[in-house]
């Protein structure tokens, strides 16, 4: 794209991000590690999702909801991650990869189950390819209900961890 046109677009549009909602009240029942305050790296694990939750997760990290302003960032490796964002029911083929990903994430770590499928298998409960919900396979710290959950709900869950 022509740099001048791009510059005009930048000057005209300014900020896309919505104003920040007030920080969600701290939930004392969650027992989140305090060393993750202010900086959280997120690794996304899709264990058998329909990609609805992926779109909402993408929106949460996009310019409008902009969860990066609270200190959360997506990373490419579970070794770099503090938070595993798991979406979808856990299919038989993804049990082992999910267990290995959790094992490859250094402590202290937080597992967030995003969407109704990850929480309680949702629509797919009892289907032949499904091994269970995320909490059947690994310990889950936070769940975000919804089919798919609203990006603002995902942002609120991540803000619980970053504390910002």
């Amino acid at each position: 794209m022509n740099p001048l046109r791009l510059l005009k677009l930048i000057a005209r549009n300014g900020r896309f991000a919505e104003p920040a909602p007030p920080a969600p009240p701290e939930d004392p029942a969650l027992h989140l590690p305090s060393s993750l305050r202010g900086s959280v790296q997120v690794r996304h694990v899709d264990t058998g999702s329909c990609n609805g939750c992926e779109i909402e997760l993408g929106a949460a990290f996009g310019g409008v909801y902009d969860v990066e302003r609270y200190g959360a960032r997506l990373v490419a490796s579970p070794r770099h991650a503090d938070v595993l964002a798991v979406t979808g029911v856990v299919t038989h083929n993804m049990v082992e990869p999910l267990l290995r990903t959790v094992e490859a994430t250094p402590q202290p770590r937080v597992v967030i189950a995003i969407g109704d499928c990850a929480r309680d298998c949702g629509l797919f409960a009892g289907a032949y390819g499904v091994a269970g919900s995320v909490s059947d396979i690994v310990d889950v710290d936070i769940t975000v209900p919804g089919c798919p959950p609203h990006p603002a709900a995902i942002v609120a869950a991540l803000r619980q961890v970053t504390g910002r």
Binding site: I10, N13, G14, R15, F16, A17, A20, G38, S39, G63, D66, E68, R69, Y70, G71, R73
Partner: peptide, 13 residues
């Protein structure tokens, strides 16, 4: 981040 229309994580991130 600012030029992309985001808020950004802050200078001290």
């Amino acid at each position: 981040a600012r030029m992309e229309g985001r808020v950004g994580a802050g200078l001290l991130q």
